[in-house]
Amino acid sequence: MRADDRKRMFWAGLLFAAGLASTARAVGLSTNFGNVWVANVPMGSTVSLRDLTGVVYRVTNTGLNAEDVEVSPIRPDASREPVWQGYEAIPDPGWIRLAQDKFYLAPGQEGVSDVFMNIPKDERYLGKKFQVWLWARNVAKDRFLAVGLKSRILIQVASTLQTQEEKKKSEEVIANLDFHLNPPLISLSAPRGEKIAVQERLGKAFKLINLTDKAMRIKVSSLRPGISGQSAPTGVKEGAAHWLAPDKERLTVEPNSVLVIPFSLHIPKDAGKGKFFLVLKADLEGYPVPISAYGQVIVDTSGED
């Protein structure tokens, strides 16, 4: 054989045989996170899953040799990867962070990390559902095969703009003020295609009670159902926000008194027959954190023409 032939013949022995024969090194990973659903994640603050749920992310080296393992949040590529029905790819995987994302794990050893979530405070994300991967993988060096596990994290953002701290503060204030609408739910029958003054025609209205010695200033509005946890009961359709209108936008509840909040309904003719869900929102003004109370309305148009 000529020398140049030899060079052509033995281009490359892609040899890993020594490693295989001598040690039969393992490659395998497991994690406690398969599909994970996290609901009501608040915006504007960092949430620790360990603190709020007591659950931590775990990854185990199921191989026979020590391994470097890395874990990264990854945005799903919707064109190549399955995204859970009703969810969309997270806009920025940087919203998710692990307390520790690199591990050196002996065989059978488990790496443990808290998972932090920080959803930006932005109305666009209210109640949104996002998917992100947590990709655990071998940091393979000098070998041909490595494994990874992509845990599917399904996040439902809270449907309020309040941060955790604001929510806590507002809950304290609400507990002290007893700020809520009475009754919490008004059910009524109404015709379609005409404006109805509910208190005048049907004798129904929401009330606010002020047990304090200070006047309360409130702003009243109609809210799109689905926001702030106000979702329609089973069998009831969500109506449009503009179908319900408070008579006055701004009101004052005098000390130690009850305020009636009248409102009107205008269900369009083409809404069809059925039960519709509407929401009235009262915001307490003059407090450093948003404090709101909600009144639900179920309108039955079945018997009306």
Binding site: F33, W37, T53, A158
Partner: peptide, 13 residues
Amino acid sequence: LTMTIGNAMSIHI
């Protein structure tokens, strides 16, 4: 905030 975890996952070669 609520959290639900499905099955653990694992892979081996």
